[in-house]
Design a protein around this nucleic acid. Sequence first.
DNA 1: GAGTGGTCTAGACCACAAG
DNA 2: TTGTGGTCTAGACCACTCT
Lengths: 239, 239
Amino acid sequence: MQTKGHPVPAKKVSFQDVRDEVIRRIQDRVWPQGTLLPTEFELAEEFGCARATVNRAMRELADRGIVDRKRKSGTRVNTAPVKQAKFEIAVVRHLVEEKNAQYRYSLLQLEQIPAPAWLSSRLDLPNDAQALHIKCMHYADNRPFQFEERWINIAAVPDVLHQDFKETGPNEWLLSEVPFSNAEIGFSAIATDATLTEFLATQPATPVIQMERTTWFQNQPVTFVRMTFHPGYRMSTSY
Amino acid sequence: MQTKGHPVPAKKVSFQDVRDEVIRRIQDRVWPQGTLLPTEFELAEEFGCARATVNRAMRELADRGIVDRKRKSGTRVNTAPVKQAKFEIAVVRHLVEEKNAQYRYSLLQLEQIPAPAWLSSRLDLPNDAQALHIKCMHYADNRPFQFEERWINIAAVPDVLHQDFKETGPNEWLLSEVPFSNAEIGFSAIATDATLTEFLATQPATPVIQMERTTWFQNQPVTFVRMTFHPGYRMSTSY
DNA sequence: GAGTGGTCTAGACCACAAG
DNA sequence: TTGTGGTCTAGACCACTCT
């Protein structure tokens, strides 16, 4: 909306400007759900910027699931926006320290064993595979925070045999050893069994959140871990 | 790696090419964690593409938390990659239908009440605020899938009074009415109380996952909902 | 066939932060 | 001050997909 008298310096239109204005129009029902938006060319003209700028803005909206884009069809306001909640799967130590609590780690058990059948099946390991079986605890201000039970595919990370995991947990070591892996994560609610009741210091059969994660590196299975949080633990995020 | 004899048509280098090659080098320890990467200009030269192309590739890696970028400092391979797990907080109906199960909705209770103190406090409502209190069930193949209890801030969406929610749940209506809201979500593990035991058809004190969500639209509180899943429900995702 | 988004380029200027 | 990423431009061609 700027009169074209003299060539005013005219601050350039940023892709954020475009993005925010489009969001505003959607929120204010100028473009209700399902609306077909103007083409990039038209928007560029309206906003007085390059098409690439509009493209960048719209691509971001598409990534967020706010609009749907199709070649030839154009850009449409999404009707059933897929809400995504992102949870940061951080190292336990960070979770604890974020709460300004003192972190402490304790190794409970470490043994090399032939991979049990269920593990071989789950990780698709050969029959004679060897595994490192680890149990450990994570404390926040000396109160039980998380119980961790883990199996590591030794063939995938042979160096693991030189680690004693007395000072730092296997997760942190694996992170430095096997960066940028792929993983499958699942959360469920379970009741504490005898072991969990003991280490988490709970009443028997207390509901707790358990997180299971299987990790691969370059298509090779590396580890399966089961992490059980203390009662009352709440995972939260916002969007 | 292309000899510069004749001006070969030479397929253009895409930002995906750059991105994937950078990922490969990080995975293969060519650039171990903490490494300072070459500048965009240098990479553009190496790959034989424009700097904008490199920028687009690196920006994606930064978004994924694989590298850290700072003006003047340059781009560095992230040491403690923050793993992000994205959960799609979809409409319950979609969750059910994804399992190829038949979805059924049932309204249990709907009443207009003065907002209880805890709700006013949580949503920052005025003292005389009115709320719509709703209880309903979601079934998958006629088996209890989720129990939902919700409070809606009537002032934020007055139209809600014209809805009877007999056929479709409040969530779907709110989604169409209040698109692109902000929300805070939390998950915890709880034991079923009398009501939940009844509606979810479980044993008393069964561990279940409960999701709480508070939603705002343009900084105005809209709704607070507590959704409790059937026993054994598992939230999962991969990255 | 034609329209729309997807991407690349070459160049430019800006903004932040390290020295 | 200076180096590095952040962004915008104007133009070009490509790729999907609808008709």
